[in-house]
Design a protein around this nucleic acid. Sequence first.
DNA 1: GGGAGCATGTAACGGGTTACATGATTGG
DNA 2: CCAATCATGTAACCCGTTACATGCTCCC
Lengths: 202, 202
Amino acid sequence: MSSRHIQYAADVESLPTTAWVVLGLLSFGRELSGYDLRKWAEASVRFFYGSPAMSQIYRELRRLEAQGYAVSRPAPPEEPRRKRLYRITPAGLDALAGWLREAPVEAPVLKHGVALRVWLGHLSDPATLRRTVLEHREFAQRMLDEVSAARAVAEHDPTWAYPAMIERWGERYWAAERDAADALLADLATLNQQPPATSPVP
Amino acid sequence: MSSRHIQYAADVESLPTTAWVVLGLLSFGRELSGYDLRKWAEASVRFFYGSPAMSQIYRELRRLEAQGYAVSRPAPPEEPRRKRLYRITPAGLDALAGWLREAPVEAPVLKHGVALRVWLGHLSDPATLRRTVLEHREFAQRMLDEVSAARAVAEHDPTWAYPAMIERWGERYWAAERDAADALLADLATLNQQPPATSPVP
DNA sequence: GGGAGCATGTAACGGGTTACATGATTGG
DNA sequence: CCAATCATGTAACCCGTTACATGCTCCC
């Protein structure tokens, strides 16, 4: 109803990024349920953007459908389970492409509880710190293993070239995270050797 | 008022992590204003946990004081500016140490808008993708420079051993982030060379 | 004089979480 | 038969953000 001419954005009540993530999953062309989307997000998006809660996914799906960016239908009776399948619309593809073109890229968000704890090391003890970092090292290794497994699946198919590329990126990221944990463990060790630093013979 | 005997936690209506971050800043012993805390967070915590909004810091300070974890006083009249200075209390130190000892370490939160965009590369174009990643590369380099500068300040003082250690960790983290961006740029380049991949001689 | 930075807040909003509720189907 | 998984939601909560309001002081 506005008198302005706006090309791509008649009604863009700008959606939260999570909505674009969900629409992004649908943009690969498959018809999926909320549950499916969750599983897939756990196996892909999780490594670089976390994975939204189920309830959040359902909310975004309803919103996307209200916006005309997706359509849904109940699964046909042949399907054993009652569920609702979502598909992206041309308008949805357009909107997603427009978001990619125009929305400014937000700075990456990092909340690193392990770094926070070491930073407050003066209120902790060496053993606890060491254990915390070691657990994180194992977590990073696990993430690396999982993202590697995910990548192995969709390799060599040009349709999945970009997801595969980001999975490679994820491998590098989590390998670096593991290595940084190792370096931190080494730093912690040298710090603990220092206090009795009245070294007899230099 | 409870009949139970609970050593460290008579009334722990568990605070959000941001409150512990603010209390953590105060745990280094200085008496600071909300504004001071914000500046300091920008120069330290930001590199591994983001930096909360001013309004959030003020809110947490009020809450910490209500809990008895911090006390405040107006700055003395000698100070040119009207402000309120906060100091950690023994109870606050106790509570923070208790949190470090007992609270489970949350998994690190990562929301990487650049990875998200490349993951959706099929809806974008090579030039845009390349520019996005390049900008991120520069962002990571900037973060690296800034954390290095911060580290240079407090080096070699045992009081700041743990913060310095985390600044070293931050340098590794942001260097790795920059290198991962470079690797991603290389991957993007090879992908763009591939489409005319009817290679004449294998 | 005026802009940059100092300093403290209030108000509105909403995104994303956990907890809860419900019920079907599959497979050991 | 019973647990795990599939499948979809509602309700409450609150963290954290942006936008706004206010006024001071420093320095060019």
